[in-house]
Write a protein that binds this DNA or RNA. Structure first.
Lengths: 166, 166
DNA sequence: TATTGTTATACTCTATAACTATA
DNA sequence: TATAGTTATAGAGTATAACAATA
């Protein structure tokens, strides 16, 4: 028979938790009051679905993000991608190398700076990115199912207020 | 002189990105349309502030979460904490061991199950958790500054709708 | 046979130092 | 001297397999 846990503050050992029972309930009231707790759970939930649905494309969230930045900004440099996506330069090297080896991304000499190289999508990269975008849009619909269009806009607006700071 | 990046779809190399300039702008329009992008950024932002402010207590988010579950559920088992917080049992071992070595958490024999042990906060653990809770509440105010009380409730409600599924 | 707590381990993600080529 | 790209590496975080003790 399942038994509810003792509320916080009850004498230790008076009403201990019941292990083993699949329906044993553990309270997380204080955590539930924290915005960070919900933001993290929402983020992990969305990332989990993203990983599943993007697996056929061989794209992790960071790969898709990098492709998206290159697609929108042909000739962008590694350094600019790092700034835009908050990726440290050493960690971007392997990401770009992988995309380059898959012939999705082209490296061209930068016209103004011999140290840098301009990144571009190959034709195959453009096709893959286009298809991945379609799935990303489906994912968006899935993540925000149960939310009206107005609620989706509200949610993004409020999230931006949380993390955007001067 | 700063120059804006070429819009997506412009001929490759026609208007390349300008590296080096601190104000070179890279567009991330599609990513900006994705809920997961904003949820992740909000989560990372809040976690970052949490790490800074909880450092004096020697508590990472996961440590605070575990303390919170034990505080609210005296006698809870490791397995129950794993279920409540989505932590894998092998990864919880070190967390509990650390809290136990710091004498913040007590392990007591479980009254009903010889395999399990009931976890409790020590007096020192209760004091530390109480102080950490106060800081967590300040953090919450900081994270949701610029949001009205109604907006805070709305944000949490909408986030729950995103990740709570049957 | 199933579960609790545990060890060992591997893989990913993230972070720092330092090097080279160029500006 | 400062910056772009890179290497090597260290530290978290997260994942699976397998074991002893108990149910």
């Amino acid at each position: 028979m399942p038994r509810r846990l003792a509320p916080a503050g009850s004498p230790d050992g008076a009403t201990p938790a019941t292990p083993g029972a699949a329906d044993a309930t553990v309270t997380t009231d204080f955590l539930q009051s924290l915005l960070g707790y919900h933001a993290r759970r929402a983020s992990l939930s969305i990332v989990g679905v993203f990983l599943d649905r993007m697996a056929p494309f061989g794209l992790r969230p960071v790969d898709f993000s990098v492709l998206s930045v290159i697609a929108e900004n042909p000739g962008v440099t590694s350094r600019q991608i790092c700034s835009a996506l908050d990726i440290l330069p050493p960690n971007l090297v392997g990401i770009i190398r992988s995309l380059h080896e898959r012939q999705l991304v082209l490296r061209k000499p930068h016209p103004d700076d011999g140290r840098a190289q301009g990144l571009h999508l190959s034709a195959a990269g453009q096709r893959l990115y286009r298809d991945a975008c379609a799935v990303a849009t489906q994912l968006e619909d899935h993540a925000s199912r149960g939310l009206t269009a107005a609620q989706q806009r509200t949610l993004i607006t409020l999230l931006r207020k949380v993390y955007e700071r001067a």
